[in-house]
Design a protein around this nucleic acid. Structure first.
Lengths: 338, 338
DNA sequence: CTGAAAGCGCTTACAG
DNA sequence: CTGAAAGCGCTTACAG
């Protein structure tokens, strides 16, 4: 590998001058600058990034921890982050927590040891303790949380308004005439499953529909199979339900599959609204009415905020945490009337 | 940040001894070793990875270039790579070429400048020239290609036998009685679209079915929309077709959607076999018979080979390139008879 | 068992 | 305009 030293020796000048010439310092003569540039490109010189990192104390690399990569929403977020990072000259190290708090904790340790310039994270469902996140902040590493966040952690956050979106979804069911509306909710922990539940409940109350807790089913792993299972369960428990708001599309697609199998007509007998707007939602039959969750934009936005914080830190400006709330909309399809 | 120097000063010993103690060199006394370890953990010492990289000339980081992240198959591959890399203490920098040769080229440059310890790549459809790949090899950076590869490049490769898999898919259509079998193929460039076409053709010939080039449709972007478009086209061109082998599930799902819309019965009027076994293939109606492509295993395997090459290089062993061919199988579902 | 010293390849404040 | 020197924080061959 070619080094500054070799270029310097070849031209009989000092390493200092070579370094300055390559960085276009104005205090190097035009002639020397040109000579150095030419020699460097002739020798295919590439600055040793390890040395640069050590000197500048930054690596132009950020870390990303995500619960699950094979997931339409999250892979869209990753794509948004990576594309935006590349534009700004940053590379992204991605890690998957697999919805495990323990792994998440270890991975933060890995990234901190690696001295990434900043960290982006969407929390595992299992995460209830936030010491590992505080450690990032104490370590003075910029941190931005997105989608699955912890409200109490002091850092910037990019989210959607889950409560509002769930309210919108439920209101739609009410508007098309549903009287008995069930909800398949996520586990007790991630904030967004709580918020989606609260939005559902609020919409009922605002429309003078009494809240019936037996219509709310709490799922654990939010899988296709769970969707089928609880769809069947619902049919046994409540013959009179005419609408369901389901916490996420994958589960909704499981439910649709089960209803189709049992000959339940959608939307005639039961209306369904999902959440996320996966690609699948548009190709299943009947296609699924759902909340569109802007994954790509969320990724872009999260990186942009992180980038600004990294920059502000470098310039010793004080960092102001921001809460960015992205808009969602309801995509009407065949699984609800009209 | 705590450094070796600070620990040394605190204990009034040399930096050398501290370094050795932390690395469990046998020539440090038990007592000193213990003292150093305790002090280090008390001060939350973390080795500065930038300095370590510079000294050891390795970063325990690899680069990954993939055509498209938001894609069930590729995100499974990424997951396989990342999980395996983490086990071996490696981190993964992911970049997306977006099926563009130009981007791919730039990204290789980025990774080489970053001095990653190795590179994993699946080529963009647009890539026809391989100089940028040779550069990796000349740079003495281990390289493993997977899925979309270039046969002429001298490096290890992890693939499936596309020709054999396509043969199997086509043979299945023949076995269930199809006489006029169409094929929706991918563009002329990626090797696997060529191989899938050849497998299709070979199966016909081996079964004494004459090859009819008008039954082969060449698609460009392999999208859901193209699937719909060519399904419609096929209905206009050839009323007698009773089976289609389609290059990838997404297109097949587009085709199914179009056939459903036009009231064509699957599999009674037309049998369909896809390729990849996306999750979607199992939930569409009718569910799709398809070739299962083991993304997660491919990722794991690709990393394992790369890891071995990195290790061999470090130990100055000569590197033997390997071609790993993973098994695929046909998953029978509702879109084909029986 | 301990430590002084060289060196990895840069950057930059400083002197001339 | 040019360059000697210090330093980023480690590792390791070598001396004692």
């Amino acid at each position: 590998m070619v080094t500054l030293k070799q270029i310097a020796e070849k031209l009989n000048i000092s390493i200092t001058t070579v370094s300055k010439a390559l960085k276009d310092y104005p205090d190097v003569s035009k002639k020397t600058r040109k000579l150095v540039r030419e020699t460097a490109s002739m020798l295919h010189y590439k600055p040793n990034s390890f040395a640069v990192n050590l000197r500048t104390k930054e690596s132009k690399t950020i870390g990303l921890i995500i619960p699950e990569i094979v997931h339409h929403f999250f892979s869209s977020v990753i794509k948004g982050i990576i594309s935006q990072a590349e534009k700004k000259g940053y590379l992204v190290i991605t890690l998957q927590s697999n919805e495990s708090y323990e792994l998440e904790k270890q991975q933060i340790e890995l990234l901190l040891n690696k001295r990434v310039d900043g960290i982006l994270i969407s929390l595992a469902n299992g995460t209830a303790d936030y010491k590992h996140l505080s450690e990032i902040i104490e370590n003075d590493t910029p941190l931005v949380m997105f989608d699955k966040i912890a409200k109490v952690v002091k850092c910037s956050k990019v989210i959607i308004d889950d409560r509002k979106a769930a309210y919108k979804a439920t209101q739609h069911l009410i508007d098309i005439g549903c009287k008995r509306i069930a909800h398949f909710r996520g586990p007790l922990l991630p904030q967004n499953s709580i918020d989606r539940f609260l939005g559902y409940k609020q919409a009922l109350l605002d429309n003078n529909i009494s809240y019936d807790s037996s219509l709310v089913y709490l799922l654990n792993d939010m899988s296709f199979e769970e969707g089928k299972f609880y769809a069947n369960q619902l049919l046994q428990d409540h013959k009179d339900v005419d609408g369901i708001f389901i916490n996420t599309d994958l589960v909704a697609i499981g439910a649709i599959t089960e209803f189709n199998k049992q000959g339940i007509k959608i939307p005639e007998q039961i209306n369904i609204v999902g959440f996320s707007n996966w690609f699948m939602a548009s190709v299943i039959s009947p296609s699924l009415t759902t909340i569109n969750q802007p994954g790509f934009d969320m990724g872009k936005k999260a990186f942009k905020i992180l980038y600004k914080e990294i920059k502000d830190k470098k310039e010793k400006k004080s960092i102001v945490y921001r809460d960015e709330i992205l808009e969602t909309d309801l995509v009407l399809r065949e699984s609800t009337k009209n």
